[in-house]
Design a protein around this nucleic acid. Sequence first.
RNA 1: CGGGGCGUAGCGCAGUCUGGUCAGCGCGACUGCUUUGGGAGCAGUAGGUCGCGAGUUCGAAUCUCGCCGCCCCGACCA
Length: 567
Amino acid sequence: MKLSNLIGQRIKEVPREAQTASHVFLVRGGYVRPVAAGIYSLLPLARRVTAKIEAIIRREMDSVGGQEVLLPVVLPEELWQESGRADAVGPELLRFRDRNDKPMVLGMTHEEAVCHLARTEIVSYRQLPCMLYQIQTKYRDEARPRAGLIRVREFTMKDAYSFHGSQDDLDDYYQRLHDAYARIFRQLGLRDVISIQSDTGMMGGAVSHEFMALADCGEDTLFISPDGEYKANREIAVSGLQFEREAPQPLRKVATPGRKTIEEVAAFLGVGPEHTGKAVFYLDHEDNLVFAMIRGDFEVNETKLRNYLGTPALRLADDAAIRACGAEPGYASPMALEPDKLRIVIDHSVAGSGNLVVGANEPDQHYCNFNFGRDFEDGEVADIATARAGDPCPVSGRPLQEKRGIEVGNIFQLGDKYTRPMGCTYLDRNGREQYLIMGCYGIGVGRSMAAVIEQCHDRNGPIWPAAIAPFQVHLCALNNRRPEVAAAADKLYDELLAAGLEVVYDDRNEKAGFMFNDADLIGAPWRLIVSPRTLAEGQVEFKTRDGSEQTMLPLAAVVNTLISRRD
RNA sequence: CGGGGCGUAGCGCAGUCUGGUCAGCGCGACUGCUUUGGGAGCAGUAGGUCGCGAGUUCGAAUCUCGCCGCCCCGACCA
């Protein structure tokens, strides 16, 4: 490719909307262009990178027996009615009607579509296990796209679906996919990709892992034990903190005028927040009131609470809803609630601690020395606390470290969540009809590309790992108006191409600095520079993008040197 | 969905408060000449319904109202 022909202008100035490294360089380097919020066109450079990522993924999926398919982007909503997700998912599922007024959706994931296929094509245990995968466009109408390709509405995803005759078989296959994922991300050049326990969310199922590329701009917060014994998303991470109950003191009401927040109350009474209890009220998807109580130094983990309650949605209750159950906002207490009007969930931190300051359920009053079990015993005790950095690991007891990560892939054990409602059955060896056991496995292609940039860049642009670089070699002809430079560079370009190397050739009549900055933005691993200066010695300058090497090569030896380094 | 910010040429911005030579600057693009090792110089050219729509006014990029879009934080997120 001659740079004079490449579509995708490099731009010097940082677009105002770009904040993260990958976003900045993808736009500045001419890889992507925004079309609408969270919707991007991929230009040739980006497409070359994603094609390589896809090839790596494809090879690994094939190696574990995957069969590639291509399912539709546009699906009849009735398929989603069958699975029950038409009602379960919110506005992120884009719905519309076709010309015959038939309800349709844009696929945001393809469990329904693959089940539609599987229920007619997989009929016998002899066909199992079976894994189908595709690399295809997804659409999710995200409320807030952000950070370039990190979080988008339209994106390319590899999604795979496996079918099994038993949970044991799924367990085995799940581990094989877990290993395949580790190989894929290693080949992409991502460092620090770790698999962590995660919430299964709307996908359902019992077991899931997320593959996180560690990066400061990542959207997810992870807790990791320093010994690697425990790795979990904050959404589900468990704190190993042990609670101690001191001897209960008599319950005592104290005036706390105007003090509503934990900070205000704790400061007013001269105690630490760990000696207080926090009351949080939620409404679930059916507007049922939920009272969650947690120690003041913790935060309620809404994912945990949602999972515990089995509700798909929670939102904070307004004051009117709180008063409706007899509680006083800001001074709410578990005592004197009306248990038949709401569900009460007590965190272990409250159940395990004694002598807490809690609301007295009337304005400007709190109780000291609240003890769960003595002063109040209704409600369900559960883990609804958000783990904190420094809390002990629940496995090893070492202090948990907090990291940020980009979720580049995930794997789920779905069981029969989809196969049962959608009637995906097969005949087992006894001729009995059984529901297929299912797993699903996703990798975000564009997000992976962005994650690589987040991890591999300098101030001038991406430093692509060779495996996914848009080009292997960036050839610059400095001062190419001189016939000998142009001739030598043209010849070298042809020879490199003939040798099977991927070359971008800067054949423009530009200043050196201009060319070098473009080369940095394109980020090819190797740079070759032909100039009057090098040609005077019969040489070409060779330089690696990461700056680790810079040397002169005899003109005649360039091609063979690069070939031997590539292989 | 809540909070904040922003929409003026492909990109980055000034101009808006205080209505009237304010349709401007830099980069980029195009032509020519010079230059050639980290985003060169000179000369010239093209490019904008000032997000959209109403309204106020003799006059609106500028004031008012409504709408749309985009970005950031939060909520949400298989």
